[in-house]
Nucleic acid binder design. Structure first.
Lengths: 136, 136
DNA sequence: TATTACCCTACTAATTTAATAGAGTTTTCA
DNA sequence: TGAAAACTCTATTAAATTAGTAGGGTAATA
């Protein structure tokens, strides 16, 4: 299940991407328009700033803005930052790999086999979508 | 993230599918071979029986066995029973649909748009794999 | 220099997951 | 027939994660 953090983060990014210019948008505006708790959204936008997706401007007329243009932002990167691993089990994760304590051998594990396919298919989707593609 | 329930359930099903005959296999045997807490596995197998995937036999020489043959069991059905919705948000779920309280319009929602593709790609994988396909 | 708006830390409530405990029931086989 | 094997069921709990809240701090700008 997609976490609210990811959901809200995506909505906020889409909101910013849909702006005609690159002027900073206040947290309060996004929170209101997208029905998100402002405080929660604050922490999400902060993490998107720290990971290089957003820039911010303080003081009057301040707010958040996209650093890159929407067509340069891959869903793969956003999902990894917001949601974490794309894989459903750590043993098939490219960026968050871990071995399973149970499972003596990945190569013969049926779960591994299936989840590898699921991961690849999800990656396909994320790689083929930029932020621009998902705004209507 | 895949729940342990689903992971263990899949492993147990695969274990049963790999049997040469259809004789009942004891919970304790599966639990030991697949490194699963026996009590936890009990409840998982029970739910797989109630949903028509497994049959059981009580008493000495009893245990669980597959009702259908492995190539007739679609991953789609198993995943829905063990993990629940395949979609990552309820608003794109085929079998567990729910509207979002936030989101005024699904058709213009960027999250909806993206997650629809992710769901379809996952479904593709699950529909193309039977229990037989994932045992090595 | 006052105001606006981002920045940061800490805490908490709710939910879900992953078990664990223990008693009960059915079936089989000797 | 009776004891053991093995499934069945309910209830409880511990741990982890998520989602949100509270509240003050800091920087920038008009």
């Amino acid at each position: 299940m997609l976490s609210k953090k990811t959901k809200y983060g995506l909505k906020a990014l889409a909101y910013l991407a849909a702006q005609s210019d690159k002027k900073p948008v206040q947290i309060s505006e996004i929170a209101e328009k997208e029905n998100i708790s402002q405080k929660f959204l604050e922490s999400i936008l902060l993490s998107l700033r720290k990971t290089g997706f957003l820039g911010s401007k303080k003081g009057k007329g301040g707010g958040y803005y996209l650093i890159k243009s929407p067509e340069e932002i891959s869903m793969t990167d956003i999902m990894r930052v917001l949601e974490g691993p794309i894989a459903m089990v750590p043993c098939v994760s490219l960026n968050f790999y871990e071995t399973c304590d149970d499972c003596p051998d990945e190569n013969t594990c049926s779960v591994h086999k299936l989840m590898l396919q699921v991961r690849d298919s999800a990656l396909d989707v994320y790689r083929n979508n930029t932020l621009k593609d998902i705004i209507s």
